[in-house]
C-alpha cells in the first residue's frame, strides 16, 4: 500500500530532475529543481523520515532555492525574461550518465540481502535529538562552526568593493534602474 505514494513521488522527482538538466531557460530549471526537492521531501516522508522531510522543505526549498533565484536575478538581469542556459556535449554526457547508472544498478542488484524487511521502527524526532547531542555531538558542533564560517565567508566574498562593475557595456534604461535599485 505504501508503493503508490512512493511511485508517485519517484515519478515526480525523476521528471523534474530531467527538466532541471534539460530546460533551456535557467529560471525554469531552478523552479523545476524546487519541484524535484519537493518530490524528494515526499519520498523522505514515505520512508518515515518526517523530521528530515520537514527540514528538507524548510532549508532546501526555502533556503537554497531562494539563494539560487536571487543569484539568477543578480547575475543574469540584462538578459530580460528568457535567461538562456545553453548546454553542449549531450551525447557524450548521456553515455557517461547512462553507463554510471547501469554500473550502480548492477551493483545494487548484485548485493545479497538488501531486500530484508525493515529492522525496527522509524526514528522519531526525539531519537534524532538524542543522537545529535549524544552520539554525534562532535559532528553537531563542528557543523555549526562550519555554517558560521560559510556565512562569514559568503558575506566577505560577495561584498562589493569596487564602485561599479566595468564588464557590462551596453545597457538599456530599465536594466540600469533595476541594477541601481538592487544595490
Amino acid at each position: 500500500m505504501e508503493s503508490i505514494p512512493f511511485g508517485l513521488a519517484a515519478l515526480v522527482t525523476l521528471f523534474s530532475a530531467l527538466r532541471v538538466v534539460r530546460s533551456p531557460n535557467l529560471v525554469h530549471a531552478a523552479l523545476w529543481l524546487g519541484l524535484a526537492l519537493l518530490g524528494t521531501a515526499a519520498l523522505f516522508a514515505v520512508l518515515g523520515a518526517s523530521f528530515l522531510a520537514g527540514v528538507q522543505v524548510l532549508l532546501y526549498i526555502g533556503g537554497v532555492m531562494t539563494l539560487t533565484l536571487v543569484g539568477i536575478m543578480i547575475t543574469r538581469r540584462h538578459d530580460g525574461l528568457n535567461v538562456p542556459a545553453e548546454s553542449i556535449g549531450h551525447v557524450r554526457a548521456g553515455v557517461v550518465s547512462v553507463a554510471l547508472f547501469a554500473v550502480l544498478a548492477w551493483a545494487i542488484s548484485a548485493t545479497p540481502g538488501l531486500d530484508a524487511a525493515p529492522l525496527g521502527p522509524d526514528a522519531t524526532t526525539q531519537d534524532i535529538g538524542h543522537a545529535l547531542v549524544g552520539t554525534h555531538v562532535l559532528a553537531f558542533e563542528v557543523v555549526s562552526m562550519l555554517l558560521l564560517a560559510a556565512m562569514l565567508g559568503a558575506i566577505v566574498i560577495a561584498r562589493r568593493k569596487d564602485p561599479a562593475p566595468h564588464a557590462v557595456t551596453h545597457l538599456h534604461v530599465p536594466a540600469t534602474a533595476v541594477r541601481e535599485a538592487a544595490e
Partner: peptide, 13 residues
C-alpha cells in the same frame, strides 16, 4: 508529529 516544521516550511515556500 512535526507540525511546526510543516508550518515553517510551507510558509517559507
Amino acid at each position: 508529529d512535526v507540525g511546526v516544521l510543516w508550518v515553517l516550511g510551507i510558509g517559507g515556500l
